[in-house]
Design a protein around this nucleic acid. Structure first.
Lengths: 196, 196
DNA sequence: GATAAAAACTAACAGTCGTTAGTTGTTATT
DNA sequence: AATAACAACTAACGACTGTTAGTTTTTATC
């Protein structure tokens, strides 16, 4: 019996998921093949199945890992004692950081979830719906307390989340702008708007 | 010889492109098959090739059609005599309307352009880069004239465009919110911000 | 060094992919 | 009615898909 096997196994599985995230982001889940992935891992395609059960299991792992990170952070923020507007700013900053630090993972979770098989697809969409609902409630609360403008909370959530998920296209022109400038300016825009 | 053939041909081709736009948006370009598409058109897969040259020609048609619409509108706005902030508002409204009226086309142009073959891919990305550059210049001009806050123009462009392209996820919950409310609130947010 | 588990390999499966060739039916012009 | 272009069909191609079975090599424990 191998003691360390469990550790070794999950390590190799992690390598596969990491390489897959790059591949899925570049080519899309449908266009990325297991043989592509195997080549990146440095192994034959069939050997991958010693560590994973299927191609879509990789997608599941990526999507739900990202979802859990966002949900955990939201819970922590909600439990804090900050002003509502400050809470929203914290969430915005976390989303921006996630997008910059774990670009491939977040991208896949944002765009490739369509290829999740049931029942994972419904599960994922439920989690996403709940997350957005919590965020909208938070914004509604901020309006009630007079901290913020009167704006449809759901539209605000939509605007914030999709504005940030668009950083994807900034990734490719990284040279033109630093991470710090991006975060500072985007937060300023999303909080204060464009008009003077 | 058939006089009307040209017209007939393009009409059927247009049907194919229209059905394809729905299919590509739902399943992604890679996962959508020509046999899928043929079934939606009501014809055998091979028959499609009497009207189109390849699968990717459909993608090209969609991506460049959308790109041209946005470029044309931008040109018209730039030539107008409005205030800069008003110009930007006009562009935002146009993007929102396009997203609502031609959702599938815009979605594909936003997300499936990766699958364009060269040299169309480079061509497309060039056009996109130029479009964003023009928009950033417009915002820079607005700042110089004192109409707007001091924000990195490129970040502003990125925020605006990606915020709007996120309407995709609103499409699926259309019942919860009307197009008018969406447009009004999103414009308000993107111009005035969240803070009171 | 023996043992046994883990992980690599080769070969192949059944199915799907985009696309082409060749043929038949349809439609419009003469 | 004859002609000719168009658009549908069937059949098939070679390549590629995710995945399984069976076998061999590597690795870790005793």
């Amino acid at each position: 019996m191998a003691k360390i096997r469990g550790r070794k196994n999950s390590t190799k599985k992690e390598v596969i998921i990491e390489k897959a995230s790059k591949l899925f982001q570049e080519k899309g889940f449908g266009a990325a093949s297991m043989r592509d992935l195997a080549e990146n891992v440095g192994v034959e395609a069939a050997s991958l199945y010693n560590h994973i059960q299927s191609k879509s299991e990789i997608l599941q792992a990526i999507c739900f890992r990202v979802a859990n990170e966002f949900i955990s952070h939201l819970d922590a923020v909600e439990a804090s004692q900050e002003l509502t507007l400050k809470k929203i700013e914290m969430i915005i900053r976390f989303h921006i950081r996630m997008m910059m630090d774990q670009y491939e993972y977040v991208y896949i979770s944002d765009h490739e979830w369509r290829h999740l098989p049931e029942p994972y697809l419904s599960n994922f969409l439920n989690q996403r719906r709940n997350y957005r609902k919590s965020l909208a409630d938070l914004i509604g609360q901020g309006m009630e307390r007079g901290e913020m403008k009167q704006i449809d909370p759901y539209v605000a959530v939509l605007t914030i989340l999709s504005a940030i998920s668009g950083i994807e296209s900034w990734q490719r022109s990284r040279k033109h702008i630093s991470a710090e400038i991006l975060e500072t300016n985007m937060v300023k825009y999303l909080i204060e708007g464009l008009k003077k």
